[in-house]
Design a protein around this nucleic acid. Sequence first.
DNA 1: TGGCGCATTCTACAGATGTAGTAGAATGGC
DNA 2: GCCATTCTACTACATCTGTAGAATGCGCCA
Lengths: 124, 124
Amino acid sequence: MKLTEAEWQIMNALWHKHPATARDIMDRLGDRVNWAYTTIKTMLTRLVEKKAVGEVKEGNTSVYEPLVSQQKARLSAFRSLLDQAFDGAVGPLVHFLAEEKQLTAREKAELQKILEREAQSKGE
Amino acid sequence: MKLTEAEWQIMNALWHKHPATARDIMDRLGDRVNWAYTTIKTMLTRLVEKKAVGEVKEGNTSVYEPLVSQQKARLSAFRSLLDQAFDGAVGPLVHFLAEEKQLTAREKAELQKILEREAQSKGE
DNA sequence: TGGCGCATTCTACAGATGTAGTAGAATGGC
DNA sequence: GCCATTCTACTACATCTGTAGAATGCGCCA
């Protein structure tokens, strides 16, 4: 499930609160972007075609609902980045993060702790 | 410096070894993609326009060289991903990584190892 | 010196993406 | 019942991307 930039905006709004109407989304995105109402509708239509979003009519108004989870979309985006820019491996990414100082010591510790817990509970 | 998918392919090849001719790149990418020579040339031309790549003629053949570092391109891609899919913060990404069951045990182990090494060598 | 082979530049073109206008249908207030 | 508002469906269109063919140029060998 590959999303475009604009589609991410819509999906983020939808994940944040749903179901939602086009108008809801427009309000939610108000500070971020300044799209015409019809632009948002177009995006939603495309997302429905892609089966990323479900649409149900209530009266004459459509109500939308995400069909793909944020987790799933994130995974897909993450994998793409990895494949494209980091030789498809986590290693180079982590190295990069370390060098870029994007991770604070605290974040590193946190990640480590969670990974340990994971490894233990799964015994892998 | 935003690169498209195809452009990443070219850039990866260029970073791997440079300077390089279009033919070199084509050979290097041979197993990955199956582009016509002119496709690669088109990509290179666009990258030169974008100032991501430098071009120097040797005889009647162009030799190319990256003008943006891999590190820089990676940073830009990483930031885009973060902004787009992870609320612009490292925190959610870290959580995602930790929770994501799709990461192989191997990737997790690798991640952990690197973090440990990092933590040690930096003493933070 | 006429090709052969490889390089270059130009042009093309379909599909994806961002962005939105327009027209017609439905709804709510008076 | 009629008008203003608001929604939907359809259409438009410039740009960007992926992909490549055609035409043309140049060096080298027989």
